[in-house]
Amino acid sequence: MFASNPFADLATTIPLNVIQGYVILMAILVVGGTVVDMIHKKSAKYFFAKAKSAEAARTRVLGAGDKIGIAVSTVVVDVATSGEFCNPKRRISHLFTMYGFILFILTTVALVFAYPTHEAPGIVSQLWHLGAAMVMFGGYWFWFFIRVDVAAEGVPCYRIVKADMFILSLLGTTTFGLVWAILQAKGVAVWTTLFLALFIISATVLFAGVLWSKFAHMFFKPAAAFNKRVIKADGSRENLPEPVDLTDPALQKRFPDIPEYMGTNPSYMGLGIKREQPKHY
């Protein structure tokens, strides 16, 4: 079952060129949404302006070798292993979700364009199912147990805000897609149609909603991480105020609200500072 290409069976009811056209359209919407997001929020303009201002404050000029080394460190630490997450549970959850999503996307493209028939290599179909399962594992773990408002503030896991659009549509796409593929392999016609429709709706929301979700952030984060390492290496960071150590007892005595802030801020989760959980009636 997991070794069969689910899109090959789908092509018997929906023309293959329509399926391929849908995938291409989603890719165009992601690119277009990201560009519009950059223009609307002026993200690129702000990023380059900050990088330019940092150049004037640098104490040393980085050579090509230095920048290549920084780029490699950024890819290995910040991108490939998500080193920005201090909480190990959050880091593992993110890695499962990230690599599962990448696997899911790449194998979808392979099954729709390169191997659109039942003769598709079994390993490709198995990796498609595995990618969906990895996203579900990491995503549901994050949603029910790791989210700051759930873990630290006791907010119900069913509370939904606009910022949750990306993770929910991602979970919907992989969950409905996996269930659809299993039902289709078992020949359950009615339920197969229902979950196919849910799969298409959630995928459309995921890829067409880039402008309103956090989808575009995955393209900005590597650039921001690279720039952060550059300004630290060239000394321009030294001209900025040093970060305040919120664990300093003297500072906490002067500002009694700091421990509570640290209990709600994800950057300080796991430091052993406890606060009374809110009561729900």
Rank of each mutant, 00 (worst) to 15 (best):
D149I: 01
I28P: 06
L271D: 01
V77N: 13
P88L: 06
I28R: 10
A233N: 12
A208R: 07
L111G: 11
V76G: 04
M262Y: 07
E119H: 13
V79Y: 01
A181H: 01
A224L: 15
G177M: 00
A56F: 07
I105V: 15
V109I: 15
G139W: 00
M134V: 03
K186D: 06
Q184K: 13
L25F: 15
M1E: 13
L103E: 11
L183C: 04
S267N: 13
F255Y: 14
I231S: 09
F199L: 09
V23G: 05
I273S: 02
G272N: 05
L29H: 10
L178W: 03
V61C: 08
I39Y: 05
F199Q: 11
R254G: 10
G138S: 04
V75K: 02
I167E: 03
V205W: 10
T174V: 14
A71M: 10
P256K: 09
D66E: 02
Y46M: 13
D149F: 02
G122T: 11
A208V: 06
V161E: 13
V76R: 11
M218E: 12
S4G: 10
A197M: 10
E153Q: 06
T81F: 10
L251I: 09
I105M: 10
K52E: 04
V36L: 15
G154N: 04
A54T: 05
L171D: 00
